[in-house]
Structure formats: structure tokens, C-alpha cells
Amino acid sequence: MAMTLRGEVLIDGAADGPLFRMAKPISFWGGIDPKSGRVTDPRHPDYGASIAGSVLALSETIGSSSSSAVMLELIAIGQAPRALLLGRPDAILTLGVVVAREMGVGSIPVLRVPVERLPTSGLARIREGGEISFAS
């Protein structure tokens, strides 16, 4: 079933990819391998999965403030999510995207959305301006 909603644009852009709605918040530092995008925290329910190439939905950002650096590195080496959908305003992961843009190594759209209302899987397409559509 298709569903569309509008997110608040934190960083504008267009992207599409498989939706990966994380079961629990995660600290990118200490939770995501900066070389591959894989979830390395064995206590996390998504342990072993990869965020690379996904449209990643996170209800909140937790843990280490080094997560900005992990985000920048993932973008720089091409292993980042294609977009971030965040439940709360955040200047840690999003700042990694801001710095990536300043450094000219790339950028991804970041939108604030009510993450709990999103589907748990399927495809997500983000248009410039913040429109997001989901398809199963």
C-alpha cells in the first residue's frame, strides 16, 4: 500500500532506497562500522545488518558525539545511507552531513518525520522539498 507524507527538511535532497527503520536507537560510534556501514553492536536488535544504501529511519540519536565523524566517513567512502529520516532534531548525525557538504564529498537528504508512523519495511522515495512516499 502506498503512503505519502511530508517531512521537515533538515538537509534537502532527493533519494530512494529500501526503508530501514531501526528497531532501537543506535550510537553510530561504537554501533556502526565506519568502513562498511554494518551494525556492529551485538546488543542491538539489528546487529549484522547494513545501513549502507538504505533510507534509514531513527526515532532518536543516542550515544557518542563521535557519531558525526562516522557519518562523514560513511559519506566520504560511499557507504552511507541514501537518506536519513529522524524522529527528533539532531545536530550530531546531521552535522556529519553538513561537513560532508562543506568538504565537497557528498550529501544526503535529512528529514524530520514522525518515525513511529512509518512503515517498517518497503521502498522509500524522497523528493526535494521533503515529500516522502513509501511503497511495499
Partner: peptide
Amino acid sequence: LLGAPRLIEIGSVHVDGCLYHGDS
């Protein structure tokens, strides 16, 4: 990003960024 209306002058900083995570 945080919805701040303005910036504020600060007295000191502690920098977490000197730990190597990648070349970028």
C-alpha cells in the same frame, strides 16, 4: 538544525574530534 534563534558567546570548549575514525 537545532532550531536555535541565535548563537551565544562561549567560555571554553572540549573537543571530542581528535580520535581518528577515517581519513575524511
